[in-house]
Design a protein around this nucleic acid. Structure first.
Length: 745
DNA sequence: AGCACGCCGACT
DNA sequence: GTCGGCGTGCTC
């Protein structure tokens, strides 16, 4: 076949491929097509291309007849990687849109959406690697006589007819991995790919679900009535059975032969969810999250693309899973910030879920007990249908929530007398008690009682946390550790005292107050090992301990049915944060934590220790609940011109030099003002110091871009962001642009 | 992001 | 005289 033979454009000038390469470039690059036969549909296929002095795997985003560059400057792509598109039109369009919207280079955006092996050009076959012994080694063992592991592997392979799956071999004997690689290099062992076994789970009979109550039934019917795209905000209090509604909606989509994509904020929540999915839904279920190996991710991703995976359960990045037979998208805990943020490609998986649902013309459900103000705003504006599950299912009743005023009260390890009394009462009744404190370590501050010196991090504007168990001072922001000084480095007095409670200290205090009562502390320090969290949760479930102490990680949807008392040791922590979302976060946290109480048959009790019992947010939340709080807070946001009543972008910059971020941000602001046409509807605010000005030895500052209308913000960003990299001072700082930031930090 | 080119300090 | 520091600039 002649070089251009077979391309669909026929005779005439050879077409040009526009290839998005995995480099931070604004645009795709033009290449002449590679020699050889064309794929039937080139757009969405990977090609290998020469790039500078190296080569790269890029994705064809368009085929053109001409290029802006002279033909002499075009290089030819080296080879097609795919015979059919890896990214279908819809996914490619979604990613292109997201790259534009979030101002991120297209090639890098596409690359981050793909599992590692596919990004690097591995065949898009769902294949299992096998090792086959070279024919020379069948009769003749001379080559391996002096290498016992290789000889072993040879015997093993001969025993199964000369070939076996790689993963199986390595599982049997890890040392064979190295032995095999050596044989492979010597050409005595060959890698081959066999088609993956189809998932044999489609024939299970799903277990029927429980009867729905009236609210659930109504929500379900409403969703099932959707024909094509529809967005639902499912606001269901903890224990109201949101999951059941998802499951039954999903079952309907599956029955119609469609795929269901379910996003969860973190995979820690997934195992219980996964079990329920497998038990209740027909069709094969795959998971997709960052904890998987590249190969496993590629396998799951391709199973979805081939339409073999019926249910895809994943975290943030799973929003970029191909869905050839889309039926439903579910975003669980839609308010959770881990569905957005993260560094690099800063996108909101929740927002993209809605976008994809619209493009794919399928329903999308955003579920939460504490919906984000953005979603509530959308529901009010009729962009989402608001479905409510206001009652706990079954016998479980809503817990009673009370504030404990701890002003001028004596605290033992952070515990007030009323709380101590309540703990006693619940323990005596044979229940479990959960104490929530979002601060690990022994004490957040170590202070010199003589001169007032406080142990601080020299790389961050932060106090060092005192960890007593390891006699260490640790910075929770940069990981710096130091030994605890014997005496004050300032005045020399040996009177350093821990100030304030941490989970370790809470543990100690509880041991004194309730001797003999089993305790379980669940924070990042006790769950560092793999599987430790699961093990601890299982222990909590079994009732191995009556007192459970936990940080943030325990606030999320884990079922602890024997817990009847939940106490928040210090609710004030989140009350006056620098972030305008701090109050919303705190309200969500309080409600989520409270949701851990009394899921069983006994009613729950929730105590919140505070020094600000009159705080309006706490009052509203307690007296009138989350929906009323949200209502009040939305009004505040509107008055302040903040999201969801405005669109924001944040330009951050950091450097080891104190003034570099300001110099860069000043020139960015100036450049921005020059690009602001008259009446652009955009404001530039700052630069201002970041909430924690110095972190990991770097000075940080930020410039806020605010617009009343999203379209104005986008128009401005398009005109502005491209030029930022070549501004004065840009090379002296690390900078990033965050569109729709969820955290100001 | 890679990767090279380019112009100034301590080494055989 | 060179090896190599990372500042600057490009990748079709």
């Amino acid at each position: 076949m002649p070089p251009q033979g077979g391309h669909p454009q026929g005779a005439g000038a050879p077409p040009i491929l526009q290839v998005a390469v995995p480099r931070p470039l604004q645009e795709a690059l033009d290449y002449r097509p590679p020699p050889g036969a064309w794929p039937a549909e080139p757009v969405g296929c990977r090609v290998e291309v020469p790039l500078g002095r190296s080569r790269a795997v890029g994705i064809v985003v368009a085929v053109r007849h001409s290029s802006d560059l002279p033909a002499s400057r075009l290089r030819a792509a080296s080879a097609w990687v795919d015979e059919q598109p890896l990214l279908d039109t819809e996914l490619l369009e979604t990613l292109t849109w997201a790259a534009r919207y979030y101002r991120y280079p297209l090639g890098t955006a596409l690359a981050t959406a793909l599992p590692g092996p596919l990004r690097q050009g591995r065949p898009a076959r769902r294949a299992v690697a096998w090792w086959r012994l070279d024919a020379r080694l069948h009769e003749d063992d001379r080559a391996v006589r002096r290498a016992p592991r290789q000889a072993e592997l040879r015997r093993r392979l001969l025993a199964s007819g000369g070939a076996a799956p790689y993963a199986l071999l390595v599982a049997e004997q890890p040392a064979w991995q190295r032995a095999g690689r050596l044989l492979e290099q010597a050409g005595l062992l060959h890698r081959e790919y066999h088609p993956a076994q189809a998932e044999g789970s489609a024939d299970r009979t799903p277990r029927p679900g429980p009867e729905l109550d009236a609210d659930q039934q109504q929500a379900l019917e409403c969703m099932l009535a959707a024909d094509g795209y529809a967005a639902f905000l499912l606001e269901g209090v903890t224990g109201s059975g949101k999951t059941e509604v998802y499951l039954q909606t999903a079952a309907r989509a599956l029955a119609a032969g469609r795929q269901v994509l379910i996003l969860v904020p973190e995979i820690g929540l997934a195992p219980q969810f996964l079990e329920r999915l497998r038990e209740r839904l027909s069709g094969s279920v795959v998971v997709l999250h960052s904890g998987l190996s590249g190969t496993d991710r590629a396998e799951a991703w391709l199973a979805a693309r081939d339409g073999d995976a019926a249910v895809i359960l994943g975290t943030r990045s799973a929003i970029f899973t191909p869905l050839p037979r889309p039926g439903l998208i579910v975003v669980d805990e839609e308010h959770d910030p881990s569905l957005a943020q993260q560094d690099g490609f800063r996108y909101s998986a929740r927002d993209l879920a809605v976008l994809r649902a619209r493009t794919l013309d399928v329903p999308v459900v955003l579920g939460s007990a504490t919906p984000s103000l953005e979603s509530l705003h959308n529901a009010r504006g009729a962009r989402y249908t608001h479905l409510r599950l206001p009652h706990r299912a079954g016998l479980a009743r809503a817990p009673s929530v009370q504030l404990v005023d701890i002003r001028s009260r004596r605290l033992v390890g952070g515990i007030s007398a009323p709380l101590q009394e309540a703990v006693r009462r619940h323990l005596d009744a044979g229940s479990q008690v959960l104490l929530f404190l979002n601060r690990r370590g022994y004490a957040p501050v170590l202070i010199c009682h003589a001169c007032g010196w406080v142990a601080g991090c020299h790389r961050c504007d932060a106090r060092l946390t005192y960890h007593r168990s390891r006699a260490q001072l640790r910075c929770h922001h940069c990981g710096h550790t130091a030994r605890v000084p014997a005496a004050c480095p300032e005045c020399g007095e040996a009177d350093l005292r821990p100030l304030g409670p941490g989970t370790e200290r809470l543990e100690e205090a509880l041991a004194e107050l309730f001797p003999g009562v089993g305790q379980l502390r669940i924070d990042r320090d006790t769950t560092r090992r793999r599987g430790a969290l699961e093990a601890q949760l299982a222990a909590a479930h079994r009732g191995d301990a009556q007192l459970l102490i936990g940080t943030q990680m325990l606030a999320k949807g884990h079922h602890l049915p024997a817990v009847t008392l939940v106490a928040v040791i210090d609710v004030d922590q989140g009350l006056f944060g620098a972030d305008f979302r701090a109050t919303e976060r705190l309200a969500q946290l309080v409600v989520q934590v409270a949701g851990r109480a009394g899921r069983g048959e006994q009613p729950g009790e929730v105590l919140l220790q505070t020094r600000h019992p009159e705080h309006p947010m706490l009052r509203t939340l307690l007296e009138r609940g989350y929906p009323a709080f949200a209502e009040a807070h939305l009004a505040e946001r509107q008055a302040a011109g903040l999201p969801p009543y405005a669109a924001l972008a944040l330009l951050r910059a950091e450097s080891v030099h104190a003034d570099a971020p300001y110099l860069f941000l000043e020139s960015a602001a100036q450049y921005g003002r020059s690009r602001l046409g008259k009446g652009g509807g955009v404001e530039l605010l700052g630069p201002v110091p970041a909430p924690m000005e110095r972190r990991e030895g770097r000075h940080r500052a930020q410039l806020m871009v605010r617009a009343e209308r999203r379209i104005d913000l986008q128009r401005f960003l398009v005109a502005w962001s491209g030029g930022l990299g070549s501004l004065e001072g840009a090379r002296q700082v690390r900078w990033s642009l965050d569109v729709d930031p969820v955290e100001m930090v």
